[in-house]
Simulated assay, not measured.
Amino acid sequence: MSGPELSGAEHALRHVEARSTGSPLDRALRVTLNFHPERVVAALADTGRYVSQFVTGTSNGGLTAFAGGDRWRWESRMFGGVYDRASAYDRPVYGGLNFRLSPYGASPRFGSAHLRLTADTLSRTTFCYPDSFLEPENLGTADRMALIEIALADDRDLLDDYIEAHVHGPVSVEADAEALVLDPSYRGTAVEEEASRLPCAVEWHPGFRLSVDELRRHPDFRGPQYVDLGLEIAVDGVLTPKIIGDVRDRYDQQDLKKVWHLLARFGRP
């Protein structure tokens, strides 16, 4: 007699675990989901759920989350095709394993805010290193985790220094989040007001802040045109996450993403 039918998430976890090596993960470590808080925090408060880019149609990385797109293809490869015909709401959400214990979350490349998930979510999370867009062979689960040693031995830029995480199954703010962690530039703003509606703790990290003098020193990081754009939108000689967020409807999103990379890379205390 066969057992109960496995869900897509369970199939994906088994598929990845069979291709993973290493010892069990330290359960004190946490997965974080980094994002820009404008709109997202309000959506979290309204729906109580964090959803994938296949649902939102937006991303702080590439914009290929559609059937046949690169993100779809990468997931098909990594998870053995189990999500090829799945609903957008059934697909995993992306974050990072915060193995360096950063107050900014595992992957601030994707935003200044993050949800810190509970230890219980680790058992339904898969991992890869480096980022899945590179189609890596190094995979992991909470029970088979060799990726930390691989990442520690690597030499990647600060913004690329993360172990990608994929949380399978619904992510509920109430059940699965320990805290929402925000940049202090959002104190006293609508983002903080929306955050107060969440059924989890709200915390603050040390903050991102980049002076225009420091910004001018890095034209080679993403290109001089993004330094110029940063200089254009800076307020009182500085960039913060809120300053970038305030102009998101006035500039190309991909251009602002590069300005954010400059702030995230060079604007930490």
Rank of each mutant, 00 (worst) to 15 (best):
S2H: 00
S7N: 00
E10G: 01
L13D: 08
R19G: 05
P24W: 14
L33T: 06
F54S: 07
F54G: 11
G61E: 04
G68L: 06
G69H: 09
R71Y: 03
R71V: 02
E75L: 03
S76H: 13
G80P: 05
G81W: 00
V82N: 02
R85W: 00
S87C: 10
P92K: 09
Y94V: 04
G105I: 03
P108S: 12
A119S: 14
T121A: 10
R124W: 00
D131A: 12
S132P: 02
S132T: 04
S132Y: 06
S132Q: 13
P136T: 08
E137T: 15
L147C: 04
L152M: 14
A153E: 12
D154A: 15
E164G: 03
H166C: 03
V173T: 06
E174Q: 15
L180M: 04
V181W: 01
L182M: 10
L182H: 01
S185M: 06
S185Q: 01
A195S: 13
S196E: 13
L198N: 14
G207N: 03
L215S: 11
R216W: 06
R217F: 00
R217E: 15
Q225G: 03
Y226C: 13
V227D: 03
I233R: 08
V235Y: 04
D236V: 07
D236S: 13
V238N: 07
V238I: 14
G245E: 12
K258P: 08
K258L: 15
V259D: 06
L263N: 06
R265V: 00
G267L: 11
G267K: 08
P269Q: 11
